[in-house]
Each structure stands twice: as C-alpha cells, then as structure tokens.
C-alpha cells in the first residue's frame, strides 16, 4: 500500500542520506521525495511517498523516528490523518499544426500555464492532487510527451493545527 510520510529533520548535511539509507538498507524503494527548509531554517521538511507491507512500514517509521536528526515523523496514511496533497509538474508536449488547439484545450481544463512555446512544442506547468496529475498525463500521452519533471507530492495535515 502507498504511504505518504512527512519527516521533519535537522537541516544538516548528511541527513538526506541517513533517511534514504533507511529505505535502501531494507530494499525499499522511495517513489518520490521532496525536501526543503521550513520557515524555521534549522528544520527541513521531507515528504516521502513509498509503498510496502504495513508491518514493514511501521518498522520504517519507527526507524525514522530513531534517527538522532529526526524531529518528527507523520505517516499520514498509516495514522489515518486527514491531509491535503499537491504536486507540481512541468510537461513538454508535442504541439504541431494539428494538435496545438487540443493541447491548449487540455491546458485550459486543468488550469495549466504555458511557460515555454516553440513552433513544435508547448511546456505546461500544472499543479494539483495526484489524481489530477495522473489524469492530465493520460490525456497528453497520445499527443506526445517529450519530457516531464515532477516535484513529487507535498503533504500537509488538514485543520488549523500545525505539526508541533
């Protein structure tokens, strides 16, 4: 099962390899990982998407907690915490005579921005939930995706309260 996990860590060098080492050391794949400092620059926030058997993931979360540099771990999926998830992707799509209008139509529907244009391509910027991202990719595939890059999902708990 897919799990979305947030890890708040000391913003120090080497932390990323400690966290990723916990996954790779157990033969676990990290599907996506995004990391950047928080408002408090001494803390970095990671959002990790991974999948695996619940029992093993419980062990991984405990191990993450055990790292000296880890301040907090939230397994949104495991704990059943309500949360919102958003991802940003940039897609370079083939846009020639016959398809330009179709690409623009899809861009419109998904509220994408066109951020680069050439006579043969459009580059779109799209932000949304994992479902929305998956849907737009499906629609653009037949037209021709030359390249795409995604941030991986970011997650934040719902409600008024912060992680502390």
């Amino acid at each position: 099962m897919k799990h979305t996990i947030t890890v708040l860590v000391e913003n120090e060098f080497g932390v990323l390899s400690r966290v990723s080492g916990l996954f790779s050391g157990r033969g676990f794949n990290i599907e996506s990982l995004s990391v950047a400092p928080t408002l408090d620059e001494s803390i970095s926030r990671m959002t990790i998407v991974t999948s695996g058997d619940d029992r093993i993931l419980e062990q991984v979360t405990k191990q993450l907690n055990k790292l000296i540099d880890t301040i907090k771990v939230i397994d949104f999926t495991g704990e059943g915490e309500p949360y919102v998830e958003r991802e940003l992707i940039l897609i370079k799509v083939t846009a020639e005579e016959g398809t330009r209008a179709e690409v623009m139509r899809i861009a419109d529907i998904f509220r994408a921005n066109v951020i680069d244009v050439t006579p043969r391509s459009y580059t779109l910027e799209i932000m949304g939930s994992p479902d929305k991202i998956a849907a737009v990719i499906e629609l653009l595939k037949p037209i021709g995706i030359k390249e795409l890059v995604r941030t991986g999902p970011l997650a934040l708990g719902r409600g008024a309260k912060g992680w502390r």
Binding site: R55, E58, Q59, K62, Q63, N65, K66
Partner: peptide, 8 residues
Amino acid sequence: IDPTSIKK
C-alpha cells in the same frame, strides 16, 4: 527501551 525492537 527501543520501540524498533518491539513487534519487529
């Protein structure tokens, strides 16, 4: 003392 030892 170590939660990772439990239910491993």
